[in-house]
Design a protein around this nucleic acid. Sequence first.
DNA 1: GTACTAATGCACCGATGAGTGCAAGAGTGG
DNA 2: CCACTCTTGCACTCATCGGTGCATTAGTAC
Lengths: 209, 209
Amino acid sequence: MPRQQPDPRVLRSRAAVLDAAAARFVAQGYAATSMEDVAAGAGVAKRTVFNVFGDKETLFRQVVARSIEVAEALAAALDEELSSYDDVAELPALARRMARAVLTGPAVPTRRMLIAEADRFPELVAEYRRRAPERMLGAIARLLARLAATGTLIVSDADVAAEHFAYLVMGADLDRGMFGAPPPSVRRVEQRATAGAEAFLRAYRPQAG
Amino acid sequence: MPRQQPDPRVLRSRAAVLDAAAARFVAQGYAATSMEDVAAGAGVAKRTVFNVFGDKETLFRQVVARSIEVAEALAAALDEELSSYDDVAELPALARRMARAVLTGPAVPTRRMLIAEADRFPELVAEYRRRAPERMLGAIARLLARLAATGTLIVSDADVAAEHFAYLVMGADLDRGMFGAPPPSVRRVEQRATAGAEAFLRAYRPQAG
DNA sequence: GTACTAATGCACCGATGAGTGCAAGAGTGG
DNA sequence: CCACTCTTGCACTCATCGGTGCATTAGTAC
């Protein structure tokens, strides 16, 4: 039975190693990151890394688990927030908020890391997709379905409409970010998001035609 | 001065090694691919690989160079084809063709490989983006600008409109493909492309409103 | 202070993989 | 047939890296 009050030394080591490992895995990928370098970056002995995490694969999985939690929390927060929207005029503002959160946060680097290791850790990728992007698309779909029910939008397939919204708003910058392009400015992200949301409204608002 | 009529043995080796290396780099990434495995896959001695390509990095660069050429040829073919379009009613068919070409061909695996190695070979990524996706977006932008000039579309910023078209048509499947999801069926790709093109037309066609 | 536990340093093992040297054999061009 | 070049196999070097064992030191809890 492990202790109930964990040793503070272990906590410190865990946190330092997780941070250092995350930075390196994101920047260089799994294979190109050495445990010695992680230890050095964490200011800890290599032996300690193995004491605490066992082996490299376990360390990587824990790094990914933490990243997934962060991404899921973001999706959950947006989901929560979306439940209060009831006016299509708010969609551009929502688009800007979403785009800022996704494109200027850790989401893009996390995605790059997972894409790079998709062959080695397919289950991790599947779990990420389920808990972050798919959850977010689901939340958007529910919002759009609700707005459609009030007649302010015309939506035949809410899932497709949610994809259209998301990729109009963030598609281009997300794609650029995947290739390691320097993060776009908040100003640019918001402009693109606004233009995308307006195009979405033109396509989905009931209007003559 | 090298020979003018290259030895057929070298040509054979080159081709076999390039094919085997491409398959492995795409599937496992740069670091996880060993030269011995490439040689075995090419049915060639490890020594021959080094004789012909010098070192691993050079081999990788040549593999990427070939992939870029393929992608560029696709973009160029679409660019050529687009110059004959002059009716917005053709956009859904164009969307389906583009989506099929991009999503069911080698483009997605190539992108994944480049994303995975973006930190090790940033210039290769930049060159790919310039010659393939940006070229394709440019072609779409020119097409949309032309259609706008005839009054059949309302386009304020052709580059943004081109992004909207591309990501409405292919965004969702492209993104899924990045994560190593199994390639979507042609049927699904075409449905998504059609729905995307129709949404685009609703957003950009002049209409009451 | 005492008993416990974790961290450290360091030497070490085993595996893997990039790249080389070389001599012998096979393919190529004339 | 001849001269030349490429391929092959093999043994080898060297570096890196994941992971371990262990004895010593330092931090923690009471």
